[in-house]
């Protein structure tokens, strides 16, 4: 099957019932982290045509013809969020971070100047077991400000 993976035309041959998260990890994209395997925790989030999806709940076959982006994809908004997460200490163990950053990236693309409450709601599909939520919220607001400045 053909798809655009991290902005490159790619051909993949997943098994019929292979989950997208497994397909991506087998491609070396190990920023896709699988934790709960049932779409509750958000750590395996990738972007499909710009929208966040928990890739553990999706068959690879469903991604045929779409554009899939992972944390490994070179992107200015991803970079701004990564920098803000570092500066605000938006993580401890880092397992959930890629999912938070990609979800935040899709959110900021539609909502460039969000309130704190909007950020918290937008990120409610991701769980951080280290409890870094206040720092994550701050990091997303900081990245939003820096992206607005860059625009």
């Amino acid at each position: 099957m053909r798809l655009t993976l991290n902005r490159r035309e790619t051909e993949l041959t997943p098994a019929p019932l292979e989950r997208l998260s497994d397909t991506l990890r087998a491609q070396g994209l190990t920023g896709v982290r699988v934790s709960c395997s049932e779409g509750e925790c958000g750590s395996c989030t990738v972007l499909i045509d710009g929208r966040p999806v928990t890739s553990c709940l999706m068959l690879a076959a469903q991604a045929e013809g779409t554009s899939v982006e992972t944390i490994e994809c070179d992107d200015p908004a991803t970079a701004a969020l990564q920098q803000a997460f570092i500066e605000e200490q938006g993580f401890q163990c880092g397992f959930c971070t890629a999912g938070f950053i990609l979800t935040a990236r899709a959110f900021l693309a539609r909502t460039p100047d969000p309130s704190e409450d909007e950020v918290r709601e937008a990120l409610s599909g991701s769980i951080c077991r280290c409890g870094a939520y206040p720092f994550i919220t701050r990091a997303v607001l900081k990245a939003a400000a820096s992206l607005r400045g860059a625009a």
Partner: peptide, 9 residues
């Protein structure tokens, strides 16, 4: 409903 990520699918 559910999560932002699940609502995409």
């Amino acid at each position: 409903m559910c999560t932002v990520q699940t609502r995409t699918l």
